[in-house]
Write a protein that binds this DNA or RNA. Structure first.
Lengths: 220, 220
DNA sequence: GAATTAATTAAACGTTCGTTTTATTATTGT
DNA sequence: ACAATAATAAAACGAACGTTTAATTAATTC
């Protein structure tokens, strides 16, 4: 009938965030009701409004923090001053690792943009553009140094990002391929895609892993 | 207050389909109301139910016909008996052209899967898997004939498809690049990605178009 | 241990949703 | 011309939605 034993604001808010990411990823933002979310958390719907003033505020918070985390991860992983190929390898590895680890949050950030108000959409897109700009700079530097063969920097950047982000659509942890196998394969596909084959016979940009030559299909 | 002058079932149904694709692509299936759709068509909401028994039936019809169209287009474009490289080129060109021409329908088919019932989702996914299987076969044949270097057929197929389908996210007709420029660039990226570089110096797999190296936006 | 504050419940509000029912008019077939 | 039918409008239905208000209890503070 009121406050329950052992209840705690911080725990409740964390539980709301986690349940919201999972529910929105599974059902979609519009299809998830606040009552459904509350039930998942084990609380009444009205309690949610102590932490997030509106449903859209909740969505925006999830998206903003996901984008901030992605940019923070890249800033931490970015090599200080390296050749374009190593910078590209770092970008790919960071992107794949981050997105595999946060499949659901990535799904939300990619699929629910249209449910944001104009201003908030702009904020999220600004962050995304800043992140993509890093890849374009790497590709441009590599093209100018003739270590990459790239016809169109912007188009190639979009293609590489979409290819990499697509990993969350089919990858399920612990199924056929390990995270490092997937990362290594995407890395070599990316390197071929941008025409990087300058250094020696078969340059390895990441820690080598045994490639199992598995033949079976990939779950949709 | 009832049937209006000049009203015609076939025209109304076609108008419903077109308006529905555009509205769902823009707002999302859940966010689009039947009243909104009816207003766009210029009709009362109840009139929609003469053509589609439920909202989900409407969505399913749009998706099914989109997938059928994609498979039909590929069956028409598929080369009779050709080497893997030419088959891959045909697959890429058909895929890009089809998806650019039907951006909104593709968006719907990719984004609204979770609004389908289990049975209908299965039907759509079956069609999608059959379509993707064609690409896997091409990649496998190419790998076995050593004209492609592909580490993992299934993973590469997913990567290529996601890279290509991603074109609808950023491409706007008549902006910077023409459709044939985009198609040619994606084709050469795909060929490098699968390690196809057997034939001569710079093999061209499609009809050549002037690559303008355009840096600025050029509106026709 | 009393007062204050934080966390939550229970109930309700107005709105919108997908859908159904019923009536009415335009078109078609004879 | 007249019956039959196809196409639509108008209105209503119950359910579910996001959100608000008010009351109630647990934890914290002094």
């Amino acid at each position: 009938m009121a406050r329950t034993t052992g209840s705690d604001g911080e725990k409740t808010e964390a539980a709301i965030r986690e349940a919201a990411v999972n529910l929105i990823a599974r059902l979609g933002y519009e299809a998830m009701s606040m009552r459904q979310l509350a039930a998942e958390v084990g609380v009444q719907a009205a309690a949610l409004y102590r932490y997030f003033p509106t449903k859209e505020d909740l969505l925006f918070t999830l998206m903003r923090e996901h984008m901030e985390g992605l940019i923070r991860a890249w800033n931490a992983a970015r090599p200080a001053a390296a050749d374009p190929a190593r910078r590209l390898a770092a970008y790919v590895e960071n992107h794949i690792a981050f997105h595999i680890e946060r499949r659901h949050a990535t799904h939300v950030s990619n699929m629910e943009l249209r449910s944001l108000s104009h201003d908030r959409l702009t904020q999220i897109l600004r962050m995304r553009t800043a992140y993509e700009k890093e890849l374009r700079a790497i590709l441009r530097d590599g093209a100018e140094a003739s270590v990459f063969s790239v016809e169109d920097t912007g188009l190639t950047a979009m293609a590489v990002i979409q290819m990499m982000t697509g990993v969350i659509v089919w990858f399920r942890p612990g199924e056929r391929l390990s995270i490092s196998e997937v990362t290594a394969t995407y890395l070599s596909m990316t390197m071929r895609l941008v025409g990087a084959e300058a250094h020696g016979a078969t340059t390895t940009y990441s820690a080598p892993h045994g490639f199992g030559r598995a033949k079976d299909a990939v779950a949709p």
